[in-house]
Structure formats: structure tokens, C-alpha cells
């Protein structure tokens, strides 16, 4: 299966997918760690894909989304963004709205705490 097919399969068979450097328990880059950290804290169930473990996926994901950086977050097959956009959406509450709209469970109190902590 080509990298593009593997990616497509991953993002369509998992509600939430984070392509990152490292894993959700062992992130290996500040930006990946930030996104994984927030998702973990908010109790979101997501599949993590360590792009460092597979160079083809690392390059393939950038082609797939036409986005040059890692991490990349997908919700219900849709590319949501990288670390900057994810952070803005978390702090503005747009992430809550998106997850609710897509039927993805998360800990609302945790999200509120993150915003309170960063305000």
C-alpha cells in the first residue's frame, strides 16, 4: 500500500489522527508535544502516527495535505491544522465547537482550564 493510501486509510478509519514526531506518550518535538499534550489533557481518544518512524509517511503526509510541517491533526478525515492553528482554536474555543460538531468526546472542563490557564 502506498504512503498516500496508508494515510488515507488512517484518517478515514480513525475519528482523530495526529501525525507527529514521536508518540503521544513520548513526543520528540516541541510542537508535536504541545498538540499531543493538549489532546491528552482533554481526554481526546486519538491515533498517533510517529512520522519519524517512516520517512515515506513523513514526506507523504505533507503532500496529502499540501502542508509542509508536522504535527498535523485530522478530525473525521479533515485536515484541521498544525500547532499554531490548533493552539489558536484551543484558546478561542473553536476546537470545542469542532469536536462537538463531529461527535468527538472530550473533557469540557479540561478545555476550560486550558483557556483559563492561558488567558
Amino acid at each position: 500500500m502506498s504512503a498516500q493510501d496508508q494515510i488515507k486509510d488512517k484518517v478515514t478509519t480513525n475519528d482523530v489522527v495526529l501525525f507527529m514526531k514521536g508518540t503521544k506518550t513520548m513526543p520528540q518535538c516541541g510542537f508535536s508535544s504541545k498538540v499531543a499534550g493538549v489532546l491528552n489533557y482533554m481526554g481526546v481518544d486519538y491515533a498517533d502516527v510517529n512520522v519519524l518512524a517512516d520517512e515515506e509517511i513523513r514526506q507523504g503526509i505533507k503532500e496529502y495535505s499540501d502542508w509542509p510541517t508536522i504535527p498535523q491533526l485530522y478530525v473525521k478525515g479533515e485536515f484541521v491544522g498544525g500547532c499554531d492553528i490548533f493552539t489558536e482554536m484551543t484558546l478561542s474555543g473553536e476546537l470545542d465547537t469542532l469536536l462537538e460538531a463531529k461527535g468527538v468526546t472530550f473533557d469540557k472542563d479540561a478545555a476550560e482550564q486550558i483557556r483559563a490557564h492561558n488567558s
Partner: peptide, 17 residues
């Protein structure tokens, strides 16, 4: 935001990836 930032990355013509 995704569309806006894609345009900025395109302007950087491969300096990023």
C-alpha cells in the same frame, strides 16, 4: 486559517519542508 497559512507556506517555496 488553513487556507491563509497554506498561501504563506506557498510563498516560502519549499524553504520549510
Amino acid at each position: 486559517r488553513v487556507q491563509q497559512q497554506r498561501a504563506v507556506y506557498a510563498a516560502l517555496k519549499g524553504k520549510m519542508d
